[in-house]
Amino acid sequence: MKSKELPLKGKHVLITRGGDQGDKFCMDVASMGGIPHMVPLIDFRAHHDQNAAIFIKNMNQYEWIIFTSKNGVHYFFQQINGKANEHIFHKGNIQFAVVGEKTREALSRYRLPSRFMPNVYTAEDFAREFFNQGLTGKKVLIPKGNLASNIIAESFRTRGFTADEWIVYETYYPTKETDKLLHFLEDDLLDVAAFTSPSTFNHFIKIVGQHHLEPHAKKLLFAAIGTVTKRTIEQAGYSTHICPKNFTIDDMFHEICIFFQQASLGKE
Rank of each mutant, 00 (worst) to 15 (best):
residue 1 M to L: 13
residue 4 K to C: 15
residue 5 E to M: 14
residue 7 P to E: 08
residue 11 K to E: 06
residue 13 V to K: 00
residue 15 I to M: 07
residue 19 G to M: 09
residue 24 K to I: 15
residue 30 A to W: 13
residue 30 A to E: 12
residue 30 A to F: 14
residue 34 G to E: 04
residue 34 G to M: 05
residue 43 D to Q: 12
residue 43 D to E: 10
residue 44 F to P: 05
residue 49 D to S: 08
residue 50 Q to N: 07
residue 53 A to M: 12
residue 53 A to Q: 09
residue 55 F to V: 01
residue 61 Q to K: 10
residue 71 N to S: 06
residue 74 H to K: 02
residue 74 H to Y: 05
residue 75 Y to W: 04
residue 79 Q to D: 03
residue 83 K to G: 12
residue 85 N to W: 01
residue 90 H to R: 09
residue 92 G to D: 02
residue 95 Q to R: 10
residue 95 Q to C: 08
residue 96 F to A: 02
residue 100 G to L: 07
residue 107 L to Q: 04
residue 112 L to I: 15
residue 115 R to T: 14
residue 117 M to K: 03
residue 119 N to L: 15
residue 121 Y to D: 06
residue 122 T to C: 11
residue 127 A to Y: 07
residue 129 E to D: 10
residue 135 L to M: 14
residue 135 L to A: 10
residue 138 K to T: 05
residue 149 S to F: 04
residue 150 N to H: 11
residue 154 E to G: 02
residue 158 T to E: 06
residue 163 A to H: 01
residue 164 D to K: 03
residue 166 W to A: 04
residue 166 W to H: 03
residue 166 W to S: 05
residue 168 V to M: 03
residue 174 P to W: 11
residue 177 E to D: 13
residue 178 T to V: 14
residue 178 T to W: 01
residue 179 D to S: 14
residue 180 K to C: 12
residue 184 F to H: 10
residue 186 E to P: 00
residue 188 D to H: 10
residue 190 L to W: 01
residue 192 V to F: 13
residue 193 A to E: 04
residue 193 A to N: 05
residue 196 T to R: 08
residue 197 S to C: 12
residue 205 I to Y: 05
residue 209 G to K: 08
residue 209 G to H: 08
residue 209 G to M: 12
residue 213 L to I: 00
residue 217 A to R: 00
residue 218 K to F: 05
residue 227 T to F: 09
residue 228 V to K: 03
residue 231 R to Y: 09
residue 243 C to K: 09
residue 243 C to T: 12
residue 252 M to V: 09
residue 258 I to E: 13
residue 263 A to F: 10
